[in-house]
Simulated assay, not measured.
Amino acid sequence: MNQLFKAWHKERKQMSWEFGLNPTKITFDDLTNEIACEKLDFDEHDWNMTILQSTGVPDKNGEQAFNGDLIMSNTYGYPMEVRWDEDAAYFYCHDHRGGEEDHLSMQEVRESEIIGSINSNPDMLSR
């Protein structure tokens, strides 16, 4: 089974795959083929977690990429962050050296290797 979500615990500074995401909050309408998800506010429970969603795209080693993962770009030779663009509704690779507008295709993930997470290794972007 593919893991769809994981969580970064801010106080413990560790990743967790067991955080109690309640699937009953996600609904599917057979008539309209629409999926609805009630926005989950984890801070109200004082869980102090950041929820990260799977992109559905594996890296070159077959490891599932999540929002917030860092890859070592095979094309450019330096780290990039996997991000979600809320307005355009897609995942992309963010090139911190190219400016805020530099969105690279998720194909970059397929050809590169996941080396960490922006949550646990933010200093990797300065390499």
Rank of each mutant, 00 (worst) to 15 (best):
Q3A: 10
W8P: 01
K10Q: 12
E11H: 13
R12I: 11
K13H: 12
Q14R: 12
M15L: 14
G20S: 06
G20C: 06
P23F: 10
T24R: 14
T24Y: 09
K25N: 09
K25G: 04
K25V: 09
I26E: 09
T27H: 09
D29S: 12
D30S: 09
D30G: 01
L31W: 03
T32D: 05
N33F: 13
E34K: 10
E34T: 11
A36S: 13
E38S: 12
L40A: 13
L40P: 01
F42Q: 05
F42I: 09
F42A: 08
D43K: 07
D43R: 05
H45R: 13
H45V: 03
N48L: 11
M49V: 15
M49R: 04
I51W: 05
I51G: 03
S54A: 15
S54L: 05
G56C: 05
G56Q: 05
V57N: 01
P58A: 08
K60F: 00
N61F: 08
F66T: 04
N67G: 09
G68M: 02
L70C: 06
N74K: 06
N74I: 00
T75M: 09
Y76H: 12
Y76N: 07
Y76D: 09
P79W: 04
P79G: 06
M80S: 03
M80D: 02
E81Y: 00
E81V: 13
V82F: 02
V82E: 01
V82C: 06
E86T: 08
D87G: 03
D87C: 03
A88C: 11
A89N: 13
C93F: 03
C93L: 06
D95H: 01
D95P: 02
H96A: 08
G99R: 08
G99D: 07
E101P: 00
E101L: 14
D102F: 06
H103Q: 15
H103D: 11
M106D: 00
Q107N: 12
E108K: 00
V109P: 00
V109W: 00
R110Q: 13
E111C: 03
E111Y: 03
S112Y: 01
E113S: 14
I115Q: 04
I115P: 01
G116C: 08
S117C: 13
I118R: 08
N119A: 15
N121R: 11
P122Q: 13
L125A: 02
S126M: 09
